[in-house]
Design a binder for these strands. Structure first.
Lengths: 353, 353
DNA sequence: CTGAAAGCGCTTACAG
DNA sequence: CTGAAAGCGCTTACAG
């Protein structure tokens, strides 16, 4: 009864007694339309329940009104990492403002990843956001091959790709600079002030720039304090690795009195393991997480962590991409500084280690 | 140097010395094309690095090649709920097979939710997936208003909307039936076999059909065992609610000897709280989660939980939607049965409560 | 097996 | 301030 056929701009134009061009212009505002005509057009559109077809608009303007995000991590990790949903929610806020949409792919292999970008490049999105930059990331080059505008969220300030100057130039991708080093420094200082000397680090995967960034910051901060920065083990952000790496660390003699984890999940698994070994937190062992997950704040004891402003970063990254699409000069913008949330898992080290 | 302008089907046709129609047909396979012609076409396409523009195809076929998913939960909850990433990864596997894409919106309010669906309906997607059905969900009606094909993932077998028969008919939406009741029954039986009598339930939000589904299953299972099913408190899936509801439960006298939580995050927060109160798990208190999150398996003790096959459900839901779009009669399909993972947080109740 | 042409529903110079 | 027309890059009857 309601809708036999979706109304088109032609139907609206006819009903309002104007041309299709005028209807289009009335909506885009790209040229003034007289008040009365305008009113008639909107009335007709409302009566016909008309909205411009995005497909037609996309073809006419060669703008899809969508951006793409492909996440190449196992669903297990995404599911425990509060970063992604927060980041995506942040993207959404600014996309909604401008009536755009987000295409998301969660892929399992590098092959699927490439396929996803190719699909996106075939006129599905106007640009993409690059997350989880790797140390020698192949995507900047892929983006320039595909002619796909991109913005990356990346701790490092310089482009991730390396190679000949010529190709490099094509591979330079504007970045939102999300440095976490300062938070790692604060965390180390916090532990040192509490009296710790033997501080260990369970890092994230070192294939990622952010993993390396935090690890390097740990080394720098420890060194600055005149402490030995060599107690580092590499985790992979999963609970399993948090537990195992913690077990390794606790087997050392002398064992660390504090552990700085690269994310909350590993810290929570580590905390749980340490307790099962009879250690009290923080009396026998201090620990800190990273990401400020929902759980961190409601564990007993509450986990000291760092809030990385993922949602703001999402918004900022989209804004930057939009600017790039609008033809603005690619600039590197700095995302909000991470903030350390002091809670109950940090205390003085035990007297007799 | 590489690409002055994106090649079009016309360029390929010209280079291969055929018509645009033939190029199109060679790719779609909708009509036979002679081997030699075919070869020339593919060669030309490869040389020009051509891929059909999705925008143009969308306009010509009135098919976008994309489906939509809008998630209306606070990012905090999504971030700790392993369901969403797994479900999305499952969607992706079948979408990738057929070269389609997923549009995702994470929205904060009902207003934004409606706006997202409207945007999708304006020729952005071919259909949508409805998650987190509410008890009187307004979306089935909205979908029929917008003329947007939809499939829902829903524990209940019958349509979620109610109203006059006439509108109802329009609002009937094919479902993938994801019933969790059987797992709740198993969990209750497991606890009863271990010797528990005073079993409590921290439910999910009861605005959701799945929250009600699990709660009802709890009541039924307890009743079937001849036990009092009235120790129920409503949580909201967050760690905060897990901790608070657990605290309430532990203040009761006599207190429950076992708690069945509607998700893992609440169970983990509850476990942590109980321990901080000096209770040993499972000696003093048994507890079970739901979802089988990454953390559950690597806590100490490991959390008994239930795997709900979210990834398979995602794949199944997309397949169902694809069938609907292909014009197949809407059928209700049953998703994989959830499976209980017995781990270490269930033991016999304490002797002297 | 292949080609010429119309059409999908918009936007945007070009004229007036 | 408004209209007629071309064009975006495909697909799909229609002819042959």
């Amino acid at each position: 009864m309601t809708q036999h056929r979706k109304a088109t701009i032609g139907d609206v134009a006819e009903r309002a007694g104007v041309s299709k061009a005028t209807v289009s212009l009335a909506y885009s505002g790209k040229r003034p339309v007289s008040g009365e005509t305008r009113r008639r057009i909107f009335e007709a559109a409302a009566a016909l329940d008309w909205t411009a077809s995005e497909s037609a608009r996309a073809l006419a303007t060669s703008r899809t009104g969508a951006i793409g995000l492909v996440i190449a991590r196992p669903p297990e990790i995404i599911s425990t990492d509060p970063f992604f949903p927060r980041f995506i929610a942040g993207c959404e806020t600014v996309l909604a403002e401008v009536g755009m949409s987000l295409l998301l792919s969660v892929v399992a292999s590098e092959k699927d990843e490439t396929a996803a970008y190719r699909r996106y490049a075939a006129g599905r999105v106007d640009g993409v956001i690059l997350l989880d930059l790797e140390v020698d990331d192949r995507r900047p080059r892929l983006m320039s091959e595909l002619g796909l505008p991109a913005v990356r969220l990346d701790p490092s300030a310089c482009p991730a790709a390396s190679g000949s100057p010529e190709t490099d130039e094509a591979a330079i991708i504007p970045a939102v600079h999300a440095e976490n080093a300062s938070a790692v420094h604060e965390l180390v200082d916090l532990l040192v002030e509490a009296g710790h000397r033997r501080i260990a680090h369970v890092s994230g995967p070192l294939q990622y720039v952010h993993g390396v960034d935090r690890r390097d910051a740990f080394v720098a901060a420890m060194t600055a304090q005149g402490l030995d920065p060599s107690m580092i083990v590499e985790g992979d952000f999963t609970a399993a690795s948090g537990r195992e790496r913690t077990a390794e660390l606790l087997r050392m003699t002398p064992r660390p009195t504090a552990i700085l984890y690269a994310n909350d999940v590993m810290a929570i698994a580590g905390l749980s393991h340490a307790r099962s070994q009879g250690l009290r937190i923080p009396e026998d062992l201090s620990l800190t997480g990273f990401d400020d997950s929902d759980l961190a704040a409601h564990l007993s004891p509450r986990l000291t962590s760092v809030s990385t402003g993922a949602q703001a970063a999402g918004a900022m990254t989209v804004r930057t991409l939009l600017a790039v699409l609008a033809g603005d000069a690619p600039t590197t913008v700095r995302s909000d500084a991470p903030v350390v949330i002091r809670r109950e898992t940090v205390g003085p080290p035990p007297q007799t280690p």
